[in-house]
């Protein structure tokens, strides 16, 4: 199957591990991802704060650039995924907005018919289009004995008919249990990591991050898997600052779900981007997985 691919800015550098592991896993499953030519930033949450119409037009340019032969686009980043779906939805619901966005696009000799492109998340593809039997069949390294907290965050599951239940999503939990992992309860799995709050007000941001780390530790998770670059960055890169702020000692590795899928499928760890995370993940994963293999 061929899909357009919208990596988004985070996946270019700060979350390159996500991009590498998405491409590696897709390749193994026979999913062909064709990067949208000359895509631009989705504006995250910042463009809607400045200018609604420009925000929509900037996002719609990417939808307009999807190869006419393709009708689905895969967007791994939560903000990109939400923004693409949001603008497609707003344009379908609101003819005046649709007309204005297309007037903007026309200034760049582009046009987008809302509804033409279906925005998908890789989790949804893997879960719905491949399913349990296919995924189990690909397992080379079962994740047996590894305690995994599945963290969905906010923008992928809400609110524009997203990829899973907005309150208690389960698809990621199911996928990892198929691969042999011990998926732990993680009641805050669809709570927000704080997004850009770290840049605005640290006490609020750190408290939001602390709640997630505390919950994962309470349920004795070895690792948190995430689907979003912002969640990964906040929980991983700010973990030391959060520890300093609350006098705690969390050392929980935060990795992308595609990295752990890749491990189960026996892909090369370097190619999956391991080593880029700040709280090291490899020692814990190798210890847990070899302990089981030896037993």
């Amino acid at each position: 199957m061929k899909y357009a691919y919208y990596p988004g800015c985070s996946l270019e550098c700060n979350s390159a591990a996500y991009d590498h592991s998405v491409r590696a896993v897709a390749d193994l499953l026979g999913i062909e991802l064709r990067e949208i030519d000359d895509w631009n930033c989705c504006g995250a949450t910042e463009y809607f704060t400045q200018d609604e119409l420009a925000a929509c037009a900037v996002i719609a340019r990417n939808l307009a650039l999807v190869d006419p032969q393709l009708d689905q686009v895969v967007a791994p980043c939560a903000a990109c995924y939400l923004n693409l779906r949001k603008v497609d939805h707003l344009m379908q619901e609101n003819p005046e907005l649709e007309s204005k966005v297309n007037q903007c696009l026309a200034a760049g000799k582009l046009h987008y018919d809302p509804g033409r492109v279906r925005v998908r998340h890789l989790l949804d593809l893997i879960y719905s289009d491949f399913g349990e039997a296919t995924l189990r069949d690909k397992v080379v390294q079962p994740l047996t004995g590894l305690r995994v907290a599945c963290y969905y965050g906010c923008q992928i599951v809400r609110p524009f008919h997203g990829t899973d239940n907005p309150e208690q999503p389960t698809k990621l939990d199911e996928v990892f249990s198929w691969l042999g992992a011990e998926v732990v309860d993680f009641p805050v799995k669809a709570h927000c990591c704080g997004g850009h709050m770290t840049q605005i007000s640290e006490p609020q941001a750190f408290e939001m991050i602390r709640r997630l780390l505390a919950n994962a530790e309470e349920y004795k998770a070895d690792v948190i898997v995430t689907m979003c670059p912002m969640c990964q960055l906040n929980l991983d890169a700010y973990q030391a600052r959060v520890n300093g702020f609350f006098h705690t000692d969390y050392k929980i590795p935060i990795i992308f779900f595609t990295q752990l899928l890749g491990v189960a499928f026996g892909l090369d760890w370097k190619k999956l981007g391991f080593g880029k995370e700040i709280v090291p993940a490899e020692p814990v994963l190798r210890r847990k997985l070899t302990a089981v293999a030896a037993a």
């Binding site: 929509c56 026309a106 760049g108």
Partner: peptide
Amino acid sequence: TRGRMSLTPTRIRNVDQLQAIIRKAR
């Protein structure tokens, strides 16, 4: 040090097109 921060920006090829779209929105 983990290669997660770029020192230089990436510029898209058709930045003029994007800017024309944004100008129209304004």
